[in-house]
Design a protein around this nucleic acid. Structure first.
Lengths: 202, 202, 202, 202
DNA sequence: GATGAATGAGAATTCATTCAT
DNA sequence: AATGAATGAATTCTCATTCAT
């Protein structure tokens, strides 16, 4: 069960390619093997079973992505810049690897026992980042003081995910990253006309 | 292939129950039959095949829900109230039928040929509603004039979906509808502190 | 289990139609019922089960045909005329009812327990007719005295069946009966050139 | 989908055995697998599906037989000897492999889409052989000059098939090949008494 | 380590037959 | 007698997984 070998990576990438095209369930181990250029049995030298491939996808690919979110956020000083970095990185990472994006979006909502734990962990990572940004932003006086962290996280993550989904559905052609700044402005300012009672009175 | 009979409804509800618990793919027709209290073969008197059950779920259940969104929105006069009704109804419909919610959230991201068309149709319905709200809100001077409809739709739909997902993951115990107003306020006012440069200058 | 009623005949005819188009096995009882304009369950008021429909086909249709062979043969006085009548009637009966012809030719070679007995019986009828013709023909000095009855029967029946098969394969358009006299001449005279050593020396 | 392997042959032979005993339709893939001593799934490594087994039977077994007809005919110089070789080989090939004989006779009259093409092809092969024999025989002055090829082919093929069928029904015990020469004499001389008006005047 | 042939459990689906109405 | 909805046994086929080479 060697990880970090060239063949491990080769199989995992092939799997993501195949899963992206057909969905995890519609894909067969034989297809993954063929796409990876190895024999069917070889898969089992690197992965416990088919489910484990998906698990490793989260463990090895998705986790990496989330760690880059962390790093991107850390590169900024102010909360609003951190937020901008978060959204930008989120979009650019998914744009850079559309197969990863497709698999992530499609399989994350299936309540699989195998992946439940790690998905929860990544969700927590995201929440931690947003929490940090919100609290710092409030200290900096840049964000409203009455925010519910959980709700803000859902607002941000939900909207970004939805933008990614739309991009996938459209074929992944357009420039996803260019949506980052408009999105952030929307997060910050909302859709209500300023000075019209929303939401200063809240 | 009788629709609208008692047995049809009975099987469809059973299927949703089973799919919600195990996911569509992990569920067998035999399980659905057992849960519906009918013989395996009976399923095929009402549904073309297993995929057709999922299709009918969208056609018969989800479509109904989206039509209720439409009606709820139509009951309000002003754009902001329409938005509030949309979000409230969205949350309350899903809260009222958690199995429907689970199946909808889990299966909508799978790019199944069978369901693609109807999902796209519902997505369009949603976009039409948001478009109407935004345009009216702008005419009323309540919403910012520089909004990109697509982005606003993703903001709203994405955030609401994410809230629903979190609720599902938490076991569906809490009161989902109570999140409606806070969410709407967030949409309208954003998270930025008013008067701090976001986004009045835009 | 009423026979000889109008509905019995109606179902049997429908069955033959359906079996002719699709083969016995590929046909479903539901298709037969539909083609007969009755409910599925009604079939079982007239036939024990699906196999019984095929059995009744032989019992009621094919047997009738073979009895007409008998009668046609009896109408002639001389052996050669009897033979001619046999072949003519054989061809004309099958030409008159192509569905019967198709089902008979297709299903007779399947060694079904249900139909074995009656097929054997009809085979015996045929052999009796041929035996009679041959023996009479020999007494009349018109047929060679050294014939093996079994072989003659196979020659005649086999050739006639083959002609019918070819006709079916060709779509049943051409005039089958017109092959009768040429066939009989072939039976009588063979394909060898007379006086060239065949088969007088044998 | 490896052909020409030992296991391929093993499964095909087992299938023919099972089909001969029960008929193609009455046989299950599981029975074939068991009879071949392999697992059910193994069948599908060598055959596309159940129908393909029957197709391969024609492609690999029956075609071989027909090619032996060709070769046997080519070994003779004179038309009548060619005819004799054809009939002898036909009977001896079927006698040598009674299971093949049973399956061939039983399934050839079912108008299956899968096998239609190859059966037609073999039928054409047979017709070509007969045509060649007849034309050569006429040139040699040994066969009547007024023969209809199609009819002659049906006479020969039909009679031979009928002889084979009778042999199968009788349990395949008797010596089939010994019927060859009597059959050929019958073909050549017919059943009519020479000099009695059949068919010298034609 | 790598292979890929073989396995056999498991699932979808069909359809002859029954039986309450 | 007639119906046709319901049944569930039976069958084909798939595919994750194993293991001898």
């Amino acid at each position: 069960m060697k990880r970090n070998t060239e063949k491990y990576r080769q199989i995992l990438e092939a799997a993501i390619r195949v899963f992206a095209r057909q969905g995890f369930h519609q894909s067969t181990v034989a297809q993954v093997a063929k796409s990876a250029g190895v024999a069917d049995g070889t898969i089992y030298l690197y992965f416990k079973n088919k489910d484990d491939i998906l698990f490793q996808f989260y463990e090895y690919k998705a986790r990496q992505v989330f760690e880059r979110f962390r790093r991107a956020v850390d590169e900024a000083t102010h909360a609003v810049d951190k937020l901008r970095n978060l959204v930008r990185t989120h979009l650019s990472e998914f744009q850079n690897d559309i197969n990863m994006a497709i698999v992530y979006q499609a399989e994350t909502h299936q309540h699989r026992r195998t992946t439940q734990e790690i998905i929860r962990e990544m969700s927590k990572m995201y929440r931690d980042i947003v929490t940090e940004i919100v609290e710092q932003g409030q200290r900096e006086g840049k964000l409203r003081p009455d925010l519910t962290i959980g709700l803000v996280m859902r607002l941000i993550n939900g909207a970004v995910n939805e933008v990614i989904n739309a991009w996938i559905h459209a074929g992944g052609e357009s420039d996803l990253v260019s949506m980052a700044d408009p999105l952030v402005e929307l997060f910050l300012g909302g859709i209500g006309k300023p000075g019209k009672g929303y939401p200063e009175e809240a």
